[in-house]
């Protein structure tokens, strides 16, 4: 028999502490992220330029950017937005594909039991190093290394090997893009490699052993075991890289001549920044472009989310539901039926 005191103790709920512990997070989140997000939406419905910032223009900004009909400046903005989306895509593809190929190759090599590689830890450490270097400094460094004068280290090296004129890596369309793609790959391949390695090591080793016993060579193991089981991780890496690629700002912004924006590497993020920061302050366009970016990111995120739903767990839940239904029907029929 429980005393009333014991009963009382049993009914103490600590649930309120749960609320208290998570409260600071949500307070800060509401003030510094949720409200600003709604503010961005609101700003996208208002005007541009210092004079018009408080005029409500509805969806005009979006119409201007997406369709681009109207006076010359509207058409120019529309073309700009198309251009920056293109730039963003080009820069992302050019960075992601080599990066994924390289990281996958390295991850497979590093986890291959047959391949004896000395100093794996050293290589991992060296290859992750570019990831922690400040992106702004990487941009500055590469801007100096690829300088178009003959004092630039790269150019001086190339000219020492017999090239006649120095290459312009900053103002030339594809040269500057190449440097950005190279720099991004340089910075991120170590990170991707380590994540893929973790995913490969998550595959049960008994599968690899069975394949080894069956006499499969490295290529067969790769195509028939590693790649299919790695698919979720590769998709995750792809989506996070895409979302990261949409936000590329440090490198494309700084890799330029003086203070003029580089037209060929201007990504969406740079566009948003410029219209916000430079005079005239086109808050409307900046916010509208941000909203477009948000929509694209949300779409990609949903794709990732859908792909990650544990199909087995969903199927099991369905089964349980079905079983419950059956039992209910049985009980009903055995009770009221004849």
């Amino acid at each position: 028999m429980r005393s009333s005191a014991q009963n009382k103790i049993r009914s103490i709920s600590y649930a309120k502490y749960g609320y208290m512990f998570i409260l600071p997070f949500f307070i800060i989140y509401f003030i510094f992220q949720l409200f600003p997000l709604l503010n961005t939406f609101k700003l996208s419905l208002y005007g541009n330029g210092d004079a018009a910032t408080n005029t409500f223009v509805g969806l005009q900004n979006f119409k201007d950017l997406i369709i681009g009909e109207g006076n010359l400046s509207v058409v120019a903005q529309h073309k700009n937005v198309i251009r920056v989306f293109q730039n963003t895509l080009i820069l992302w593809f050019g960075n992601f594909i080599p990066q994924l190929a390289l990281s996958l190759l390295l991850a497979v090599w590093f986890t291959d039991i047959n391949l004896k590689i000395k100093g794996k830890t050293f290589f991992k450490i060296v290859m992750y190093l570019p990831n922690i270097v400040t992106a702004a400094s990487v941009a500055a460094l590469f801007l100096m290394l690829f300088s178009k004068t003959k004092y630039g280290p790269i150019n001086s090296l190339l000219m020492g090997m017999g090239m006649e004129k120095p290459i312009d890596f900053v103002r030339n369309e594809w040269n500057s893009r190449f440097v950005i793609m190279f720099a991004q790959t340089w910075m991120w391949f170590g990170n991707t490699m380590i994540m893929l390695m973790a995913a490969i090591m998550g595959i049960s080793p008994s599968l690899f052993e069975a394949a080894d016993i069956d006499g499969a060579n490295s290529r067969q193991v790769f195509t028939k075991i590693t790649v299919p089981l790695l698919r979720p991780m590769v998709i995750y890496v792809m989506i996070t890289s895409m979302i990261g690629g949409l936000q590329m700002w440090d490198l494309p912004y700084l890799f330029r001549e003086g203070t003029t924006t580089n037209r060929f590497t201007e990504t969406i993020a740079v566009y948003i920044y410029n219209h916000f920061h430079n005079v005239p302050h086109n808050y409307g366009y900046s916010a509208a472009a941000s909203v477009l970016l948000f929509i694209v990111t949300a779409a990609l995120g949903s794709v990732c989310f859908i792909m990650n739903i544990d199909k087995d767990a969903v199927a099991k839940k369905k089964q349980i539901k079905e079983a419950k239904k059956q039992m209910k029907m049985q009980r009903k029929s055995s009770f009221g039926g004849f």
């Binding site: 997000l37 961005t40 948003i272 990111t297």
Partner: peptide, 28 residues
């Protein structure tokens, strides 16, 4: 702790991860 808002709160936190910084920065 166990409380009613636990799962929705966690899901909300996960969703927040998706928003790129540029999207909130203008309003911010």
């Amino acid at each position: 702790y166990d409380f009613k808002a636990k799962t929705p709160a966690y899901t909300a936190i996960l969703l927040v991860m998706m928003v790129p910084v540029q999207v909130t920065s203008v309003g911010f």
